[in-house]
């Protein structure tokens, strides 16, 4: 066996076997106890001095009061089936062609419509029925065919888009069917605070699932404008950010990073691409010990000379 091979074999055995060189006294439990004490002092100090952020939730009532025009436009989009939620595809709806795919990979469709949400019904018609608001308009809507419903809601949506500031009171007259009454009725109950309860109680008394409310809120522009002001949106590195100046999930920096790269962030399937990149990179990190090149970086950039400088100095 050549010398180099021999020494490599010996070195390996040195890595593998229990250390039989000199030792220093050590007390695992004592180190743990001191660690808990020191870290505890730091954490209690930060908690006492800096506290933690707590921005109150945004309700449908807050939205309706702060930006009624946005609320009406969104309610109309729910009826027309054009809102983000209504046209999302799986897991909320079966809208064709709405999923994010990568070549032949369509995991979103494979997962199926597990959390079905009928936006028009769940966000508008059912709450109006529950609250007995605009009952005549609800009856007219129910009696119409779905083509008729979509035609009414779409033309009202277009008219709102053209109206000054999206203000429903300035919309030119047209064939909108019961849609203006429905959305106005919904706005009224939302402003009074009843809509939050009505949508939430669709899940019964012990409802612990606010998904419909969150999705309805996010279909409008009000919710995201608040998030933008707090630098929380995806294109603002928002995934890492916390409200105020508090540190957030800074460990998500790499996940967030890919959304800032225009080539990736602007893709229609950006989310799927970023997920694949991150799964791949996490696997690479886990498998570093087996990847030639990567596993040799610590030899090429000798930070270890600094870490074990005493050891190397006294060889």
């Amino acid at each position: 066996m050549p010398d180099s091979q021999k020494s490599r074999a010996r070195r390996k055995s040195l890595d593998v076997r229990a250390w039989n060189g000199t030792t220093r006294p050590y007390d695992l439990l004592k180190e743990l106890a001191i660690g808990v004490l020191v870290v505890g002092v730091i954490i209690v100090g930060f908690a006492a001095v800096a506290g933690s952020p707590d921005e109150p939730t945004i309700t449908l009532q807050n939205w309706a009061q702060a930006n009624p025009n946005d609320f009406v436009a969104t309610a109309t989009a729910e009826l027309a089936g054009t809102s983000d939620t209504a046209s999302y595809g799986p897991p909320y709806s079966s809208t064709a062609g709405a999923t994010q795919t990568l070549g032949p990979i369509d995991l979103q469709t494979m997962s199926g419509v597990q959390l079905r949400i009928d936006a028009a019904k769940d966000f508008v018609i059912t709450p109006l029925t529950t609250l007995d608001s605009a009952p005549d308009a609800v009856s007219t809507w129910r009696a119409a065919t779905s083509e008729q419903q979509t035609a009414w809601a779409t033309s009202y949506s277009d008219a709102l888009g053209k109206a000054s500031n999206g203000d429903p009171s300035t919309v030119v007259s047209g064939n909108y069917g019961p849609v203006p009454q429905l959305t106005q009725g919904l706005l009224t109950v939302a402003k009074g605070g009843a809509l939050d309860g009505a949508i939430q109680s669709e899940g019964g008394l012990y409802n612990t699932n606010p998904t419909p409310t969150i999705l309805f809120l996010s279909d409008g522009t009000y919710f995201s404008s608040l998030a933008t002001a707090q630098h929380l949106t995806g294109d603002q590195w928002g995934m890492m950010n916390e409200t105020g100046s508090y540190p957030g999930q800074s460990w998500l920096w790499l996940f967030s990073f890919w959304y800032q790269v225009p080539l990736i962030g602007n893709l229609p399937n950006a989310d799927l691409v970023v997920v694949f990149i991150m799964v791949f990179l996490t696997l690479v990190l886990a498998l570093v010990p087996f990847i030639p090149g990567l596993r040799s970086i610590p030899r090429w950039i000798p930070v270890h000379r600094l870490i074990w400088r005493d050891y190397y100095r006294k060889r």
């Binding site: 908690a47 006492a48 001095v49 800096a50 506290g51 933690s52 952020p53 707590d54 921005e55 002001a229 707090q230 630098h231 603002q236 590195w237 890492m240 950010n241 916390e242 409200t243 105020g244 100046s245 508090y246 540190p247 957030g248 800074s250 920096w253 800032q260």
Partner: peptide, 27 residues
């Protein structure tokens, strides 16, 4: 036992930007 100073509470926080790169002060 309220926090002595509040870093947030309805203030948008401090956000630093250099070109395309931006980061929140806390982070």
């Amino acid at each position: 036992m309220h926090a002595l100073i509040h870093l947030s509470q309805s203030t948008p926080g401090i956000f630093l930007t250099w070109g395309v790169f931006g980061i929140q002060l806390g982070n």
